[in-house]
């Protein structure tokens, strides 16, 4: 959503704005400014940097310990000879993750300041000074391990990948809808542990994702036995291809969740309304 074209006026807030009545001595003005506009503007600026350098940027999100760094290690091993890769680490407390990535022979920079629960576009912009973007093809941002806040902050990246490790339970997409709705890919990680768990069903996890009206692909992955590594690499390569083609037509890529608003902007559909507790009788 942006603030200049009026797309902040959704059916949800339009009536409120028009209902505003002048009171004695009080002047009321409509603002309709996104509360995250400062971050969003910075994110657009970051995206312009990435696009100028033709670097596909992937934001990895999950709860703590779901296997983000292990996924990156496996990815780098596979791709480091064909692509120039770098990693921004949002591990705020220790340098462990940064050292693990550097041990794979690619540049990694650790973001050490800021609020401990999520990365924002300003923190990422500051980190960019530590890379030569023009020398990169692929930049991963490992966000802070947290299923709540990181989903709300656009970093200027192009794709969101959300990991769900099998030990967390297959209900997580239903419990953290804001996060899983943002996923352009859901990666079910640590599948080597499935034989030891009797209550994780990958089909339930997929169903819970679908219930969020999110048709993102799902890949099952293990960094221990390399299950799904080929599928994950194939997804990455196809994203690089799509991104490159978009750039050639002077467009950029955005996480799907951020593209959605544009639909209603242009939509002329006059839908019927079905309140939440109404019994439905289709006509």
């Amino acid at each position: 959503m942006c603030n200049t074209c009026g797309c902040n006026i959704t059916p949800g807030n339009r009536p409120l704005v028009m209902a505003e009545k002048p009171k004695n001595g009080v002047t009321t003005i409509s603002v309709l400014e996104n509360l995250l506009s400062k971050n969003n503007n910075q994110a657009e600026h970051n995206r312009a940097h990435f696009d100028a350098a033709k670097v596909l940027v992937i934001n990895l999100m999950s709860s703590p310990g779901s296997g983000k760094t292990a996924l990156l290690e496996a990815t780098i091993k596979r791709l480091r000879d064909s692509f120039k890769i770098a990693v921004i680490e949002g591990d705020l407390e220790t340098e462990n993750d940064t050292q693990r990535i550097q041990a794979q022979g690619v540049p990694a920079y650790q973001i050490t300041t800021g609020t401990a629960c999520h990365l924002d576009a300003h923190l990422v912009h500051n980190a960019l000074h530590h890379f030569s973007l023009n020398d990169l093809d692929l930049l991963f941002i490992e966000n802070v391990g947290n299923l709540v806040c990181p989903a709300s902050f656009d970093l200027g990246h192009h794709r969101n990948v959300v990991l769900l490790s099998v030990t967390e339970g297959d209900d997580k997409p239903a419990k953290y809808p804001v996060m899983f709705r943002a996923a352009d890919l859901m990666l079910i990680s640590k599948t080597d542990l499935l034989p030891y768990l009797d209550d994780f069903s990958t089909s339930n996890a997929k169903q819970n994702l679908q219930n969020l009206a999110n048709a993102a692909p799902v890949i099952e992955f293990s960094s221990k036995d390399s299950n799904g590594l080929d599928d994950w690499i194939a997804w990455l390569l196809s994203e690089i291809k799509t991104y490159t083609e978009l750039l050639q037509t002077k467009k950029t890529q955005r996480p799907k969740v951020q593209q959605e608003g544009q639909f209603f902007h242009t939509s002329s559909v006059k839908p019927k309304f079905y309140p939440i507790n109404t019994k439905i009788t289709p006509d």
Binding site: G12, V17, V26, T27, S30, V31, E260, F264
Partner: peptide, 14 residues
Amino acid sequence: SLISGDELVLASVA
């Protein structure tokens, strides 16, 4: 497709 529900907007100031 989502019509409303992800708003985070300063609507007005009096």
